[in-house]
Design a protein around this nucleic acid. Structure first.
Length: 894
RNA sequence: GGACGUUUAGCUCAGUUGGUUCAGAGCGUUCGCCUCACACGCGAAAGGUCGUAGGUUCAAGUCCUACAACGUCCACCA
């Protein structure tokens, strides 16, 4: 086989490999009664979205789980798709239209929707093309879109069901209104920004009295819509005024003074003007106190006919100036204070949000929330990290009704129908609406029925995602087989908007939880911990990163950096971790294959290994380490501890396998003249290597596949992504072997340290003396002279019991065994003295701690016997080692 | 204001039920090496009173309490 290039080239391999996987249908899952399904539904990215770093970790993790389960023999199904993203998409197209000199309204609903669909066809798939570059093994044949026909049917179906059940109602509500976009916004579409404003103190005269009451407000123009003044019932200053009326200045209306707990006596004057139609708090108070609601602005935030004539038609801010001027004239403006407060802004156009009273559709959430809370508290759905359970509980127990209507055109049109007489109903179709409305309005004509103009909140389709993608409301085979799904991987910021609602919908419409585990992945921030944002320009383009470092490198790096439940501080350069690792793996394989391929061709290839267990210590050791690794990685993945899994693999491959085992193999291979032995050595190494690649594959799919294909002649369809994960053989995990190896490695490291500290040139060979007091350790050294000799560059080796210390030698004590490196003429006595003294000091410190315990009567009296024993043996070891080091220090020169 | 989280080496983080040489890793830094897989590499070193103050315990990085700093979410005082 041809020799591999010197370093792994991700660009040359990734696309080729992905195409092969996808075109052969390896990602496709189907109903298979022989297998257990494992399902993930992707958090559908917006069609307006382009791939950003946030998607990377999220989708990498899903891919890890899917590939892992697939290699475990599950029917692994990962359903991809996109979200129609109401406002975002409408805005994008709106912008395009404006460039062309037209507007949404000019175009009209139908034409506009055509345009959006066109746009979607052209650009809506961008993100999925990009996702493929990450190597995700989504079942692209199952790709769904929240507005496609099936999902739209699901939306209608649940709307009607909820309506018929009385869980959807129409009502007035204060919504976040953007006067520029002309639509309601959900709370998450509002950015709260701290702004410097003013607090104005306004005098309201009491009716039939010379007294007055002063209120403080940040929005004086809304006084024109006041319908009460509220004070705290416990506030002695105002108790006598409760029940009286004030004459509202400028508007000259008489409004009552009322009492309510929501008033904070310490803020402002302790008296609040109440504007139920233009403030969410006042709205709530207004409901409690049964106050009228006066809407004083139109949808563009211009004052309407409910205010005195002189203010009508003014913009809210113009009106504010006028109102203040007029109040001043009438001597009713008592004072003005600077005041910093939070103001809601539209996340699209940054216009200040106007709380606006309007007709909206709502879902009653309480009946849905209760079962949804129960399944999480009962552990039927588990959250990782677990602490999100509390956050979830908190939200669900204080849940408020869900405003589901949006004044947009792009989205699922509200399937509600109105009769001319005002009756309305919800229906899956006009015909159904007609049948339903006929009952209440017998004289109705079908053509007079009007469908609601609004569309539904985008989340109203997303919350059905786990089952709508599989054909709901039809009871399809897919739905029966793949639902409930297994693991949901998402960011924690949509726990309420999406996760909680999916749980509710799953229970309500399927009678079954939508998934069993929710894994909340970390948020990606920049190197300074700031959020990634376009305006900061700190959001790297993942496609560029993949081009530079490779998809595996990016995947590995974000997993490697992502602490559980914490944010990831990411910068592009960190991808070197992943790239270097991929390259390391590549070269280990390259080296092993090079050695194998120089041997005469035989048919046994990999078969020979496994037939007979190796008696070689290094083989036994690496098998032990390998099986530990399989065990640990498996545990970590099953418990969603991905960083641990990734680090375990990294350490095993780099340290155990490359730094030590491959070095051992080199030596053994070079020493041997027996072709069969050589083949056995190299094939054993390759076998472990190949199995490790499989274990690593879910994390780094491309490089592992590429090497796998080079490792042997593969038949069509023999691909690593369809291989089985290595099974752990715990009988091969051998602590005795590992202890022996640990000793050997320590000895080698000590000699290397001496070389380094004494500035021995790497090319120079040195002598080595080991004076042992432990027969097993002595034998161990004897048996591995070859390794010592090569790895420490030794000229001569003498191993024995109680050997004398050669003059002018550097020394060290490893597990009670003394090692000497005679360095006459080379030794720097001062350096060696310092080195030994430092070690003595360190050990004496440790000894002191041990002695303190052992002389402490309460420790000896109360600690368990085995702990005391351990301390005693530590004491002995420390003392003996210190003693040896001290002697060596004294005899340094002699 | 409420809830949650974090605080360990210059940086980013591990440290599972308190007790194995427990004070660790990677990056960065320093020193030496292009050693026939890999300089995207190899070998070695320096570097920390584990946020602060108490407490529990024979024993605390680990458990409890308070405080501080930072972060996130929720609710937001008009």
């Amino acid at each position: 086989m041809a020799e591999l290039p010197k370093s792994y080239n991700s660009q040359e391999t990734e696309e080729k490999i992905y195409k092969n996987w996808e075109s052969n249908g390896y990602f496709h899952a189907q109903v298979n009664p022989q297998k257990t399904p494992y399902t993930i539904v992707i958090p559908p990215p917006n069609i307006t979205g382009i791939l950003h770093m946030g998607h990377i970790l999220n989708n990498t993790l899903q891919d890890v789980f899917i590939r892992w389960k697939r290699m475990q023999g599950f029917e692994a199904c990962w359903v991809p798709g996109t979200d129609h993203a109401g406002i975002a998409t409408q805005n994008v197209v709106d912008k395009a239209l404006r460039k062309e000199g037209t507007t949404i309204r000019e175009l009209g609903r139908e034409k506009f929707l055509e345009r959006v669909w066109e746009w979607r066809t052209q650009y809506g798939g961008t993100i999925n093309t990009q996702l493929r570059k990450l190597g995700v093994s989504c079942d692209w044949q199952r790709e769904r879109f929240t507005m496609d026909e099936g999902l739209s049917n699901a939306v209608k179906e649940v709307f009607v069901r909820l309506f018929d059940k009385g869980l959807i109602y129409r009502g007035k509500y204060i919504v976040n209104w953007c006067p520029r976009e002309q639509t309601a916004l959900s709370d998450d579409e509002v950015n709260s920004v701290e702004r410097k404003g003013h607090l104005w103190y306004i005098k309201y005269p009491i009716e039939h009295s010379v007294e007055s009451i002063i209120v403080a407000t940040t929005r004086p123009e809304t006084m024109l819509g006041d319908t009460a003044v509220a004070v705290n019932p416990k506030d002695d200053r105002y108790k006598h005024l409760i029940g009286k009326n004030v004459v509202l200045p400028l508007a000259n209306r008489v409004i009552p003074i009322v009492a309510d707990d929501f008033v904070e006596p310490t803020f402002g004057t302790g008296a609040v003007k109440v504007t139920p139609a233009h403030d969410p708090n006042d709205y709530q108070a207004g409901i409690r106190l049964n106050l009228p609601q006066i809407i004083i602005m139109d949808t563009s935030a211009k004052m309407n006919k409910n205010v005195p004539l002189k203010y009508q038609g003014l913009d809210r801010y113009e009106c504010r100036r006028e109102v203040l001027r007029d109040l001043e004239k009438e001597n009713l403006l008592v004072k003005t204070e600077d005041h910093v407060h939070n103001v809601g802004h539209c996340y699209r156009c940054d216009t200040v949000i106007e709380p606006y009273l309007s007709d909206q559709w709502f879902v009653k959430m309480k009946p849905l929330a209760e079962p949804a809370l129960k399944v999480v508290l009962d552990g039927k759905i588990k959250f990782y990290p677990e602490r999100y359970t509390k956050i979830y509980e908190n939200w669900l127990t204080n849940i408020r009704d869900w405003c589901i209507s949006r004044q947009l055109w792009w989205g699922h049109r509200v399937p509600a129908y109105y009769a001319p007489d005002g009756n309305f109903t919800a229906a899956r179709s006009l015909d159904e609406a007609y049948e339903k409305l006929k009952i209440k309005s017998p004289n109705i004509k079908k053509e007079d029925i009007r469908q609601d103009d609004d569309v539904l909140d985008t989340w109203f389709s997303s919350w059905l995602w786990p089952f709508s993608v599989h054909g709901f409301p039809e009871q399809t085979d897919d739905l029966k087989y793949f639902y409930p799904t297994d693991t949901l991987v998402t960011a924690s910021d949509i726990i309420f908007f999406w996760v909680a609602r999916m749980i509710m919908a799953g229970l309500e419409f399927m009678g079954e939880v939508p998934f069993k585990q929710v894994y909340f992945n970390s948020l990606i921030r920049d190197g300074q911990g700031r959020k990634m944002s376009k305006s900061l320009g700190n959001s790297p383009d993942p496609i560029e990163v993949i081009g530079t470092y490779g998809a595996d490198a990016l995947r590995f790096t974000v997993m490697f950096l992502a602490p559980e439940g914490q944010d990831v501080l990411y910068e592009n350069e960190k991808c070197e971790i992943g790239r270097n690792f991929a390259n390391k793996i590549w070269n280990a394989g390259r080296f092993l294959m090079m050695n194998r391929d120089q041997l005469p061709i035989e048919n046994d290839q990999l078969a020979i290994v496994g037939s007979k267990p190796s008696e070689d210590l290094t083989d036994q050791w690496i098998l032990s380490r390998f099986n530990s690794t399989v065990k640990d990685v498996t545990n970590a993945v099953e418990n969603f501890q991905i960083v641990d899994a990734v680090k375990t693999l990294y350490d095993f491959l780099w340290k155990d396998f490359c730094d030590w085992y491959v070095e051992f193999v080199k030596i053994r291979f070079q020493e041997s003249n027996d072709v069969h032995l050589k083949r056995a050595i190299i094939n054993r190494a390759l076998k472990i290597y190949e199995e490790t690649l499989k274990l690593l594959h879910p994390f780094m799919p491309f490089v592992t596949e590429e090497i796998y294909q080079h490792l042997a002649e593969r038949k069509t369809g023999d691909t690593i992504m369809r291989a089985s994960l290595p099974a752990v053989d715990t009988t091969l995990i051998d602590t005795e072997i590992e202890t022996q190896m640990d000793f050997l490695q320590n000895v080698i490291s000590q000699v290397r340290t001496i070389r380094s500290e004494m500035n021995i040139p790497p090319s120079k060979t040195i002598d080595f003396v080991a004076s042992c007091n432990d027969f097993d350790k002595q034998t161990l050294l004897e048996n591995n002279r070859n390794l010592l000799q090569k790895l420490c560059k030794l000229e001569s080796i003498s191993i024995g019991t109680a050997l004398p210390k050669p003059g002018y030698s550097a020394s060290s004590v490893v597990k009670g065994q003394e090692i000497f490196v005679p360095l006459k003429g080379l030794i720097d006595v001062d350096v060696e003295r310092e080195r030994l003294q430092k070690e003595i000091d360190r050990l004496e410190g440790q000894l002191k701690g041990v002695m303190a315990k052992l002389t402490n009567q309460s420790f000896v009296g109360k600690a368990p016997a085995d702990v005391i024993e351990k301390e005693k043996s530590k004491q002995q070891n420390f003392q003996q080692t210190i003693e040896k080091l001290k002697i060596n220090l004294e005899q340094l020169v002699g």
